[in-house]
């Protein structure tokens, strides 16, 4: 059965080298760790599953729950370091880890602040640029210093655009939030919507950096990594609880986005073969309209079967959805929602 695990001869750059380790995580979707486990069929590489606690909003806010979650993650990371040292036969370079983790945290802060700038009217940076730039933070690789500089340059550019009111989408008529995975194969689709004055000002929670917290007093780099990562979830718990919302991540952040980025509508992109990016979207649609009077347009597609995505169908509905967005703009005005 192992013969199926060969690298295809036509693979770019000779294909990926055989891994010495499959590092997966139990975060967000089950496929992450089950898939790597199933890869045992083709690869004899060991699998390590990193842990990330998935607490409910109320449970996450119970006394001691946050500290316990962090303790758990730190202990897990320490186990992981031990495992890596055993696997690779060398010691962890703690100074280097310190440096790398600080760069990543810092980079994410700059990237977060860049996205904050997109709250401006007109929005200075479009979703297409977001999708091009998010990889550096989400999958940091290569020269982190250079990457950090790229993010700083990006920040400066976006800031300049805000100060000079340079719009990403000329004639910004409608501001929209997009969820979840973009149609990678048809990003041009966003341009066609931009021609109609649709400006995508914010998007998929899971691809955005966590809300920055001050980690400068945290001595242990593992604890810094844990707090930084867990913030991705926990950063939304308190507000979520205040609003009586139960889905602290994947759900509630969209309410915050719609409010803070002043969105007129949401474009939801359910995928047939990615449950995790799909199963909450109807719920999100409902919360957005119930709580914020922000309507959603659903454009189903897939990341595997490209034929399932029909941009023409969505463009056809765009005209009707504009009337819907107009209608709810009036409703929000009447209800004093502020945008």
């Amino acid at each position: 059965m192992k013969d199926l695990g060969e690298i295809p001869p036509e693979a770019p750059m000779g294909g990926m080298p055989k891994p010495v380790l499959l590092m997966s995580a139990g975060s967000l979707c089950d496929a992450r760790y089950k898939w790597f486990q199933a890869l045992g069929r083709y690869l004899d590489a060991p699998v390590w599953v990193l842990e990330l606690p998935h607490l409910g909003v109320k449970e996450g806010l119970m006394e001691g729950a946050y500290d316990q979650a962090i303790r758990f993650m730190v202990e897990e990371l320490r186990e992981f370091v031990g495992f890596l040292e055993k696997l690779l036969g060398k010691k962890m370079d703690w100074d280097k880890l310190e440096d790398i983790s600080n760069d990543i945290i810092d980079m994410n802060r700059i990237w977060y602040e860049t996205n904050e700038l997109r709250k401006a009217r007109p929005c200075p940076m479009h979703s297409r640029d977001f999708w091009t730039c998010m990889t550096g933070c989400l999958y940091p690789a290569g020269d982190l210093k250079a990457l950090k500089k790229m993010y700083q340059d990006l920040y400066d550019e976006v800031k300049y655009r805000v100060e000079n009111k340079i719009a990403a989408c000329p004639n910004e008529k409608y501001r929209l939030v997009f969820a979840e995975l973009p149609p990678w194969h048809s990003l041009k689709f966003f341009d066609r919507l931009a021609e109609r004055g649709w400006s995508f000002v914010v998007e998929s929670w899971a691809y955005h950096p966590p809300k920055p917290i001050d980690l400068s007093q945290v001595k242990d780099p593992l604890e810094r990594i844990a707090k930084f990562t867990y913030q991705w979830f926990a950063g939304y718990f308190e507000e979520s609880e205040k609003q009586g919302e139960q889905m602290g991540y994947f759900g509630y952040p969209y309410l915050e986005y719609a409010r803070d980025w002043q969105c007129d509508g949401a474009l939801l992109h359910p995928l047939l073969s990615c449950r995790t990016a799909t199963n909450h979207l109807m719920y999100v649609q409902d919360r957005l309209i119930q709580k914020s009077n922000v309507p959603s347009l659903v454009a189903s597609g897939d990341i595997v079967d490209l034929t399932l995505f029909d941009p023409e169908d969505t463009l056809r509905r765009a005209e009707a959805f504009e009337e819907t967005m107009d209608h709810y703009k009036e409703v929000r005005k009447k209800e004093g929602l502020g945008w």
């Binding site: 139990g26 760790y33 842990e51 606690p53 607490l55 449970e59 316990q68």
Partner: peptide, 15 residues
Amino acid sequence: FIDIPHTIHKPAQNQ
């Protein structure tokens, strides 16, 4: 809502 770790590592059992 009870969270369940994905592994049976010792820290996961404590959690």
